[in-house]
C-alpha cells in the first residue's frame, strides 16, 4: 500500500480543523480580566493562523504535484500497519486494566500481548520475558524509586 496524495490532503484538512477548533475555543477568552494589553486569546489565535495558512500552502503543493505527477509515494505493508494498530489497542487496554488488576498483573499481560502481537518470538520465551521484565520494573519502581503503583486485587504487594 502507498501513502497517497489523498491521505496527505486529509491530514492537512485535519490540521486546519484542529487549528480552527483552537481558534474558536479561544474567542471567549478575550473576556477574561488580564494583566497584559492583548489578552489570553491572541497568541493561540496567531498560532492557529500559522497552521491554517501553512496547511493551505501544503494543499496547494499537493494539488500541483498531483497535476504534474512529480510525487514519489512511500509504501508500506498493510500487515505491519495492522500489527502497529494492535500494539495501540493493547496499550489502550492496559490503561483500562491497570487500576483493576494492579500494576504487576497488568504489565505481565501488556508485555506478553505486545510480544505476541508482533510475532516472531516463541511462547516460552515470551512468558519468561513478560513475567521477568514486569517483575523487574515492579521492584525497581515500587521498591527502589518508591512510586505508589496500583495494587489491584493483590493487596499484599
Amino acid at each position: 500500500m502507498t501513502i497517497t496524495n489523498k491521505s496527505k490532503a486529509v491530514l492537512n484538512i485535519l490540521w486546519i480543523l484542529a487549528a480552527a477548533a483552537f481558534y474558536w475555543t479561544s474567542i471567549p477568552y478575550s473576556e477574561a480580566r488580564t494583566f497584559d494589553p492583548i489578552g489570553p486569546h491572541v497568541f493561540p489565535q496567531i498560532m492557529s493562523g500559522v497552521i491554517i495558512l501553512c496547511s493551505l500552502g501544503n494543499l496547494l503543493v499537493i494539488y500541483r504535484h498531483s497535476k504534474t505527477g512529480t510525487d514519489t509515494p512511500e509504501t508500506f505493508h498493510p500487515g505491519d500497519a495492522l500489527r502497529m494498530l494492535l500494539v495501540l489497542v493493547v496499550s489502550g487496554l492496559y490503561i483500562w486494566l491497570m487500576p483493576a488488576a494492579g500494576y504487576l498483573v497488568a504489565t505481565i499481560f501488556l508485555i506478553f500481548l505486545l510480544i505476541a502481537v508482533q510475532g516472531e518470538v516463541g511462547l516460552r520465551v515470551n512468558i519468561l520475558v513478560s513475567c521477568g521484565f514486569a517483575l523487574v520494573l515492579y521492584l525497581l519502581f515500587s521498591k527502589v524509586l518508591h512510586i505508589l503503583l496500583p495494587h489491584g486485587f493483590l493487596e499484599f504487594i
Binding site: L114, Q118, G119
Partner: peptide, 11 residues
C-alpha cells in the same frame, strides 16, 4: 530481538 525490545520499551 526488536520484538522484545519494543515491548520492554513500551512497558
Amino acid at each position: 530481538p526488536e520484538t522484545i525490545m519494543n515491548a520492554c520499551i513500551l512497558a
